[in-house]
Design a protein around this nucleic acid. Sequence first.
DNA 1: ATCTATTTTTAGATTTGTCTAAATTTAATT
DNA 2: AATTAAATTTAGACAAATCTAAAAATAGAT
Lengths: 231, 231
Amino acid sequence: MSNKNVFLKKYFLMTRSEENYLKTIFHLGGGDAKSITTNAIAEQMETKPSSVTDMAKKLSEKGLVDYVRYQGVSLTDVGVKTALSIIRKHRLWEVFLVKKLDFTWDEVHEVAEQLEHIKSEKLIDKLDELLEFPKHDPHGDPIPTKDGKFQERDEKLLSEMPINSQGVCVGVKDSSVPFLKFLDKNKIALGNTIKVLDKEDFDNSLRIQMDGKEMRISHQIAANLYVKKND
Amino acid sequence: MSNKNVFLKKYFLMTRSEENYLKTIFHLGGGDAKSITTNAIAEQMETKPSSVTDMAKKLSEKGLVDYVRYQGVSLTDVGVKTALSIIRKHRLWEVFLVKKLDFTWDEVHEVAEQLEHIKSEKLIDKLDELLEFPKHDPHGDPIPTKDGKFQERDEKLLSEMPINSQGVCVGVKDSSVPFLKFLDKNKIALGNTIKVLDKEDFDNSLRIQMDGKEMRISHQIAANLYVKKND
DNA sequence: ATCTATTTTTAGATTTGTCTAAATTTAATT
DNA sequence: AATTAAATTTAGACAAATCTAAAAATAGAT
């Protein structure tokens, strides 16, 4: 192997496992220099803290995280960029699965978890183009641009909307299969306009109007729906 | 882990490495009960014979190959079916890359080598549908059906065509990047009609007519182009 | 039929990513 | 400040997939 390839191997080629750790650390908030504990990572990834420690050392040596023993890890700038590129791939593949292959939004995650590790810059650029540069994935999560920029949305949780305000449903906070299936069953979909009619003090449930119909939803549901407020 | 999953793990979940071995054995001809030597597999996969021996034992335990020490391996029926499903995935992804993402035929192999290992039956069925059930990949190789059937074509090598016969170019035997680039440069593409005008005894080169133009091609080129003969 | 060259396998080591159990450090409480 | 509970790391082990070097089996040639 040439010197050049040794360089590439050490600094750019990432294993699937390394990529999964970076993604998890990012999602746990370790991008803002916040330090994430090994325990938190282990719990999220359903692995053991000792395994996380090992990987933390490895990622630290590669310059992808800052790691201080007993203090946890945070992503470096390179680490954030790398995490964003994996998240970009994951979300673009999710859009592909829904738009081109008729997957439902509760089916895409598992397959995208595999597809996100495919290595080909051209593949992802062309996929982006085929999908006409989508800004959000099927759950409403923003798709980072090629150079790692997010467009943050002016959105809030439905549970935080004042009475009589209304907005468009733009995303879900919880994208677990049961929650998504629940939304389907109740005909709650992204794009729907929702108006908050009333709040019940007792259990924080909401009475809402959606597509002309009235319904009652629990606080737990409302706290997992993002709404873009119509001013 | 439940008993059911133990069963699934042992008999159906294949590692990437196992899948690559099965594919190689199939391509070396080990599907017709022919026994393939460990050396041949090692050479093809650029690995060591001792590694092949280890994997042969593993695949044999899983019932995917028949393995006799010092005699080589051949695929069982299950092994053939599994190999075909991987080849099916590889070739469908190649078609996708060319038809939907504008890849050239010399760029697809490397990416398809990764994509072929994605596990999702629905994904591949839907991809097949999106591509309108293609029968051949961009190099003219047949795509096995879902139930593992090939449609063999009535094709022969251009080098074996008699003088004055003509046919349509339907595939390449060698699908290496240099050969494909050479064909592009010389405007030789699948679908072109080729007529054999003359053969040179000295070096076995051919004088051909293609799209009205005459050209001379070496034996090595002609021996790597499949032609469907017009009767 | 024996010998020899080649092929193939075995044995033991390595790397990656994981685990368990024990040891260490930190943080909370008195 | 000392003690203790919780979090974290270390040490040692394991499985998968590979390698090298040595041993064993096969096949070809005399």
